[in-house]
Deep mutational scan, measured.
Amino acid sequence: MAEQVALSRTQVCGILREELFQGDAFHQSDTHIFIIMGASGDLAKKKIYPTIWWLFRDGLLPENTFIVGYARSRLTVADIRKQSEPFFKATPEEKLKLEDFFARNSYVAGQYDDAASYQRLNSHMNALHLGSQANRLFYLALPPTVYEAVTKNIHESCMSQIGWNRIIVEKPFGRDLQSSDRLSNHISSLFREDQIYRIDHYLGKEMVQNLMVLRFANRIFGPIWNRDNIACVILTFKEPFGTEGRGGYFDEFGIIRDVMQNHLLQMLCLVAMEKPASTNSDDVRDEKVKVLKCISEVQANNVVLGQYVGNPDGEGEATKGYLDDPTVPRGSTTATFAAVVLYVENERWDGVPFILRCGKALNERKAEVRLQFHDVAGDIFHQQCKRNELVIRVQPNEAVYTKMMTKKPGMFFNPEESELDLTYGNRYKNVKLPDAYERLILDVFCGSQMHFVRSDELREAWRIFTPLLHQIELEKPKPIPYIYGSRGPTEADELMKRVGFQYEGTYKWVNP
C-alpha cells in the first residue's frame, strides 16, 4: 500500500466541504435556525453545542446559521458558553472563530407547556436576519415526558411559513410498544414523516454505516452471507464503567431499553437485511423493517440478565456495585447486563442465532459485530482449526478484520490463527472521521433520513421486546451478580454456547 501524504486539518475539512456542497440537498446560502429545546441540560452542553461548534469551526454548516437555545432556566448566552465550552476542545488559535460562533447564538427562556412562551420564541426567531423565511431545525434534547406539549406548541407557534421545518427526537422513544405508539401517533398528527428525525446516534458511527458497503459492494461476501456458512452472529456493546452516581436515570430504563432495543437491534438489521433497491432512505429502511418483521418476540429462556457488584480487589469506582450508587433505588432489580438470542425467521437466516450482548462495568470498552462461520467440513488438521470470524469493530479503534487459519512457519503443516486486517487509523491517516452527532446533524440539514429511525421500524423493535420488558417488570427477577471489570455473568457464556457459538479464547485482536 502506497504511503499517504499527511494533510493538514484545513485540507481534510476542505475535502469534506467539497463532498457536502456538491450535493443538491445542502442549501449552503439559505438562512437556517437550529433550535435546541432543553438548552440547559446535560445532553445540550456535552453533545449538541459542542457538535454545532465543530461543524461551524470546520465550515460545514450553511453560511447563515443561527443557534437558539430554549429552556425553562433563566440563562444568558454567557451562561450557555460557560457550561458548554469546556466540552468544545477549542484551541487558543480558534479564539476569534469561537467569538464568531457565540455571536450567532441567542437564548430564550420559557415554559414547555405555555403557548405564550412559544409565541415569544417565534418572535425572537423572526427578528433574526431573514428569520421569518429561514429553515428551522428543532432538536428535542428533553425528557420524553414533555415531548407531547413541546411538539404541539412548536407546531402551533414556531413553524417557518416559507422555509422547511424538521424536528429531531432523542431516544428513548417511549418505554414499550404502547407508549411508543402513543408518542408516534401524537407526533405524526403534527408533522409529516419526512419532517421527523428520530435519532439513534449509533447509526451515525462510521463502521455501522460501513456495514452496507461491506455487504453490498464486495462480491466475495454475497455468496457466504447466509445460514449455510454463518453459524452465529454476535452483536456486542461493552462499557468498562458503571453508573457513577447517575444511576437514578438509568434505573428508569435499564440496559435493554438503553442499548439493546435500539443500538444493537439497528446493527442487527444492517447485518441481516436484503440488498435495498438503492441507497435512498426509504429503500434502506424498507429492508430493515422486513428483517424486524421476521423476528419473533424474545423468549425468556433465551435471556440472561445481570447486575454488577463491587470488586473487592478493585480501586475507586470498581469497588462499588450498582446498588451502592446513592441515586439507585434500594434493592433495585434493574439489569445492567443483558444477553438475548433472537432468530430472523426467513430463508437466508433460518436457524442462525443472533446474540445481542450489552452491559456496564465490564472488562473493556468495545462495540462490534462478529460473524462466526461454520467449521470446515472434512477436517484434515486433527481438530487444530478454529472457526473463521469476520469482525466489524465499531469502537474504539474502528477496524474490519477476518480471523482465519494460516500455516505456522516451519517444517510442518501446523495451522495457527491469524488475521486479515483493515484498521482505519492506519489505512486512512488523512481522513477526519466525523463524530456520530456531527454526521447525523449534517444529515438533518441535508434532509437525508437514511440513518434515522422510521415509525414502522420503531414499532417493530418495541413489538419484539415489550413482552419481555413487561414480564421483567411484573416478576422482578433478581439479576445474576457479576463482578465489576469482569466479562459479565458466566451464564451468558453458557447461553451463547448452547445456541452454537464457540468461544476459543486463544486469539485476541490487537490494534496495530
Rank of each mutant, 00 (worst) to 15 (best):
T10Y: 12
Q11G: 12
C13G: 09
I15G: 08
L16Y: 12
R17S: 13
L20V: 13
F21H: 09
F21S: 14
Q22S: 15
G23M: 15
A25W: 15
A25D: 14
A25R: 15
A25M: 15
F26Q: 13
H27V: 15
H27S: 13
Q28K: 12
S29I: 10
T31I: 10
I33S: 06
I33K: 01
I33E: 07
F34H: 06
F34M: 13
I35L: 06
I35A: 08
I35G: 04
I35Q: 04
I36R: 03
I36H: 02
M37G: 05
M37F: 13
G38P: 02
A39Q: 00
A39D: 06
G41T: 03
K45E: 05
K47W: 06
Y49K: 00
P50N: 06
I52V: 10
I52S: 04
W53M: 00
W53R: 02
W54R: 08
F56S: 04
R57S: 06
G59K: 09
G59W: 01
L60W: 07
L60A: 06
L60K: 07
L61V: 11
P62Q: 06
N64W: 06
N64Q: 13
T65E: 00
F66S: 08
F66K: 12
F66R: 13
I67F: 13
I67S: 01
V68E: 06
V68M: 08
V68K: 03
V68L: 08
G69I: 03
Y70E: 00
Y70P: 02
R74M: 11
R74P: 13
L75Y: 14
A78S: 15
D79Y: 07
I80R: 01
I80P: 01
K82D: 10
Q83S: 15
S84R: 03
S84M: 11
E85F: 08
E85V: 13
P86H: 11
F87W: 13
F88Q: 05
A90N: 12
A90G: 08
E93Q: 14
E93V: 09
E94G: 04
K97Y: 07
E99K: 11
E99N: 15
D100Y: 11
D100Q: 15
F101A: 02
F101R: 01
F101N: 00
F102K: 03
R104G: 05
N105W: 12
S106T: 14
S106F: 14
Y107I: 07
Y107P: 02
V108H: 10
V108D: 02
A109T: 15
G110V: 02
G110T: 00
G110H: 01
Y112W: 07
Y112T: 05
D113E: 11
D113T: 11
D113H: 14
D114F: 08
A116P: 14
A116T: 12
S117I: 05
S117Q: 09
Y118R: 00
Q119T: 15
Q119Y: 15
L121E: 01
L121W: 01
S123R: 15
S123D: 15
N126I: 11
N126C: 13
A127T: 11
H129I: 13
H129T: 15
G131W: 07
G131N: 14
S132V: 12
S132M: 15
Q133G: 09
Q133P: 10
R136F: 10
L137C: 15
L137F: 12
L137K: 00
F138Y: 13
F138Q: 02
L140R: 01
L140E: 00
L142S: 00
L142W: 00
P143I: 10
P143A: 07
P144T: 00
P144H: 02
V146R: 07
E148T: 15
E148I: 11
A149K: 13
A149H: 14
V150F: 00
T151A: 12
K152Y: 13
K152A: 10
N153D: 08
N153K: 14
I154Y: 02
H155A: 13
H155Y: 13
C158I: 06
M159P: 10
M159Q: 14
Q161I: 11
Q161K: 15
I162K: 14
I162E: 14
G163R: 07
W164D: 08
W164K: 07
W164Y: 09
N165S: 10
R166I: 02
K171L: 03
P172Y: 04
P172C: 04
R175Q: 11
D176L: 00
L177H: 05
Q178P: 13
Q178Y: 10
S179R: 03
S179P: 07
S179E: 09
D181G: 10
D181A: 11
S184K: 04
N185H: 13
S188E: 12
S189V: 09
S189C: 10
L190T: 10
F191M: 10
D194K: 12
Q195N: 08
Q195P: 01
I196F: 05
I196R: 01
R198P: 01
R198G: 00
I199M: 08
D200C: 01
H201L: 04
H201V: 03
H201K: 01
L203G: 03
G204Q: 01
G204P: 01
M207T: 03
V208I: 09
V208P: 01
V208Y: 04
Q209Y: 05
Q209C: 09
Q209M: 05
N210R: 04
V213E: 03
L214D: 07
L214F: 10
R215I: 02
F216R: 04
F216L: 03
N218L: 01
I220L: 14
I220S: 05
F221C: 09
G222F: 10
P223W: 06
I224V: 15
W225Y: 06
W225F: 12
N226I: 05
R227K: 14
N229W: 03
C232Q: 14
C232P: 07
V233L: 05
V233H: 01
L235V: 10
L235Q: 02
L235T: 05
L235Y: 05
K238M: 02
P240D: 14
E244Q: 10
G245E: 08
R246Q: 03
G247K: 05
G247C: 08
G248K: 05
Y249G: 03
Y249H: 04
Y249P: 03
F250V: 00
D251R: 01
D251C: 03
D251V: 01
F253S: 11
G254F: 02
G254E: 01
I255K: 04
I255N: 00
I256N: 05
